[in-house]
Amino acid sequence: MYEVGIIGGGAAGLAAALELSRRRVSSVVIDSDKHIGGLSRDLCCKANPVCQRCDACSPVDIRREVRKSPFVTLISSSDVIDASGGPGAYTLSLQSSSGISEIEVKSVIVAIGSPTFDAARDARYRYSDCADVLTSRDLETMMISGNISVPSTGKTPQSLAVIQCVGSRDAKHGAPYCSKVCCKYSLKLVKRVRKELPEIEVTFFYRDWRPSDREYDKLAEYGKEKGVHVVRSRPAEVIIGSRPLVRYATVEDEVREDPFDIVVLAVGLQPPQNSQKLASSLGMECNQYGFFIKKGEGAYAAGCCTGPKDIRESVEEGIAAAGKAAAFLEGLQ
């Protein structure tokens, strides 16, 4: 019997587990993936060379602390297929390769996160049939490996385009909302790439600049640097050629097609899958998109499953949920 069951071992779930362990409250973290860490696991540090507060290291630190804690049990490669009970006594049914098992907990924190948009679904950008069209996460992985090269030729890229709002602010693909984090990470990622490859020409296609914190002028300032072009436009499509061509309309209503070595799609965050079922079995509620609504006692939600947010805010929400759960458990005694 554990005190708190945490569904999802991403930034928010692990932050909740760590805060509970600081209060000597036992918890179990259940993650469907083989490795815990969630979406934030494979992000690169954006320091150039001073810290840019991208928060990529924050979940790594939290995970290390959680692993050391005697109050946290980690269960990976397991899905929560069903839940029953109510505040004070929940039963979670887990499915793993070794079969189905049950765990009893007094309180639940749902931190199942949200997947990034599958870029192949937006066929205009040719993610599935052009090797040189990458998602922002692919570029992160490339940065971690330390080898930035054009996938089709293996050469060092000379030009790079970033297309913002892929799978966000897009009603056709089920995400009419803004993903809130893409402006923040894209610009920091681009700056980091240009730190590694100072010669690269970068074109930043954006719709509205919505930064984190007070960086309202950051994009305009960055656009003045040599080799950086900031274009307010939503590209119509990517055309496959010897190099991918980005077709877009300029503000003067002129249609242009510019070739780039690499086209990066800044993918947004999608609502969690099957959240309605999990929510109803725990007595929680979801909004029309499937994001959890924070309400009620006993079962709490934290992180991106309550709406798109950055690592920092997810961690804060995880800590806050842990506080609520701890207060709820004290009330039981």
Partner: peptide, 14 residues
């Protein structure tokens, strides 16, 4: 200069 309706606030903008 810029419409900053973050996250789900975008729906209000629409």
């Amino acid at each position: 200069p810029e419409v900053r309706t973050f996250g789900l606030d975008e729906l209000e903008y629409c």
